[in-house]
Design a binder for these strands. Structure first.
Length: 483
RNA sequence: GGCGCCGUACCCAAGUGGUAAGGGAGAGGUCUGCAAAACCUUUAUGCGGUGGUUCGAAUCCACUCGGCGCCUCCA
């Protein structure tokens, strides 16, 4: 089965066929950097990270571009709206650019922790003002935009395909219901390409029309087309940006170039809390920095991947705790496998696991619009079989056991970004510590041989308090660290 | 008001025409000095409700109840 993905533009699952053979250009709307990232951001960027990883695993050369929005856009489309970056900079008594930098670093720190691979290009909106102005000039030349009082607006009525992504029809939109009609605008649906700056607006640039700043939507058109070409394969983003943001991107880009902008639109769904959207406006969000105090970032990542990217994911402590226990079990399986590999005899005494079946089942799930929950289920099935194999106590050859671990490296680490690249058999953290614990386990073994259970249990309980769990198995005691 | 989505066991969550994945939690068992882990078994004749189409529906259609998203910045 070849890769199929759900295209929001056609509202159908489509066979993935990139514009240029094995090359894929992909753009995802990045964060506006005026606050710490929350679980909603994590869902989005982890999802797209796995999509990029899987495309690469499938043999595509991907150029992944994700912007950083550091221009202060207005709340609303009115002149009295507040600039979010300016607002935050006042609160922190910093220059808006300091704020942008602070939260850009914070963003990457969180994403790195989550195992999200860095995009190939992370362009900043403020670094591409010239490109944005160029597009606006073209739109004016083509008569798709007009100027009024130093600001420039896109004339939505001139672009007949407007609404093709979101399914909106101009006539049916109740105009001006939530947006104040601006006198400069010909029609309430028109959106700003360039805004003349008010005196208090610090982030400002010269342009042919006024000293001002670009509209929100134009940055993504400018940066995506600069690095990926006028038409490219995949554009991703949050569902809430489908309208107006992505609809406007299409209008500007296709209006300016006359070419199809994006072939596949991918939209990820939201994290909810008690059924309600987690978002900045509702204030019901959990920042990643707070989440990481309770859970390892990998657990958060795993929790996210246990639901489909196009489904909402309901967040609760109980649900993430549950995901954490599941991941711990899976990790334990591979830790024990690693232990076996160390002590296994040379040679290839074969195991009975059909690794190719697991590989193909995993890919079948991922080929079906990146069904990560299904893919994880495949890994659990594999884990179950590995556990059975370990429990059987049969002496499999080292080479054949390593083959099994290869699957973990490939699918779990490589594609899903869970279960780190190398798993130490007993999570050892420096040799001296491991030697020390080995000695304790050895002494305890002698104590147990004398059936001095009290002392034996005292050692085990004491170690547990230090975060080290002793497990007595048929093959002797094993220890592992718990966090 | 317009556009759209969702409702699957105690919790999270796959499944879009062929007879309910997976994880967590719970129960029983094997093993064990005990514990933990692991392994085996088990937990929805049922997929919000009511009709309909079909040999067959969680899946398609209609109606209905409940929840949510977008239309203002938001991943």
């Amino acid at each position: 089965m070849a890769l199929h993905l759900y295209n929001t533009l056609s509202k159908k699952r489509e066979l993935f066929q990139p514009l240029r053979d094995k090359e894929v250009g992909m753009y995802v709307c990045g964060p506006t950097v005026y606050g710490h990232s929350h679980l909603g951001h994590a869902k989005s960027y982890v999802s797209f990270d796995v999509i990029v990883r899987y495309l690469r695993y499938s043999g595509y050369r991907v150029r992944y571009v994700q912007n950083i929005t550091d221009v202060g856009h207005l709340l609303g489309d009115t002149d009295d709206g507040e600039d979010r970056l300016v607002k935050q900079s006042k609160a922190e008594q910093k220059h808006p650019m300091e704020v942008a930098d602070e939260y850009t670093r914070s963003y990457f720190e969180d994403m790195d922790a989550l195992g999200v691979l860095r995009p190939d290009i992370s362009p900043r909106a403020t670094g591409h003002i010239t490109e944005q102005i160029e597009i606006i000039k073209t739109l004016l030349q083509k008569g798709l935009a007009y100027e009024g009082n130093g600001s420039v607006y896109f004339d939505v009525r001139k672009f007949h395909a407007y609404g093709k992504l979101s399914g909106r029809v101009l006539e049916e939109m109740e105009s001006g219901k939530r947006v104040e009609i601006k006198s400069e605008k010909r029609n309430p649906e028109d959106f700003a390409l360039w805004k003349k700056a008010t005196p208090e607006h610090v982030m400002r640039w010269p342009s042919p029309w006024s000293v001002g700043f670009p509209g929100w939507h134009i940055e993504c058109s400018a940066m995506s087309m600069k690095y990926l070409g006028e038409g490219f394969d995949i554009h991703g983003g949050g569902l809430e940006n489908q309208f107006p943001h992505h609809e406007c991107e299409i209008a500007q880009s296709e209006g300016a170039t006359g070419k199809p902008f994006v072939k596949y639109w991918l939209h990820n769904n939201m994290v909810t809390v008690d059924g309600q959207k987690m978002g900045k406006s509702l204030g019901n969000f959990t920042t990643l920095k707070d989440a990481f105090k309770r859970w390892e970032p990998e657990v958060v990542r795993f929790f996210i991947l246990q639901s489909h990217y196009r489904s909402t994911l309901d967040f609760s402590n109980e649900a993430v705790d549950g995901a954490g226990r599941g991941l711990a079990r899976l990790r334990q399986t591979f830790q024990q496998l690693a232990g076996r590999i160390q002590t296994a005899p040379e040679g290839n005494e074969p195991h009975t696991i059909s690794l190719d079946t697991y590989r193909s089942e995993f890919c079948k799930a991922m080929d079906d619009d990146f069904n990560t929950p299904q893919a994880i289920a495949v890994l659990f099935e594999l884990g179950k079989e590995i556990n059975g194999l370990i429990a059987s106590g049969k002496p499999f050859g080292r080479g054949s056991l390593q083959e099994i671990d290869e699957v973990r490296k490939e699918l779990a680490s490589g594609v899903l970004g869970i279960l780190e690249e190398t798993i130490a058999p007993q999570s050892l953290n420096g040799t001296s510590e491991a030697d020390l614990l080995g000695l304790i386990v050895e002494i305890r073994k002698d104590i147990r041989a004398q059936k001095l259970w009290g002392i034996s249990d005292k050692i085990r309980d004491g170690l547990q308090k230090l975060g080290i769990v002793i497990e007595d198995t048929k093959e002797g005691a094993q220890w592992k660290k718990v966090t």
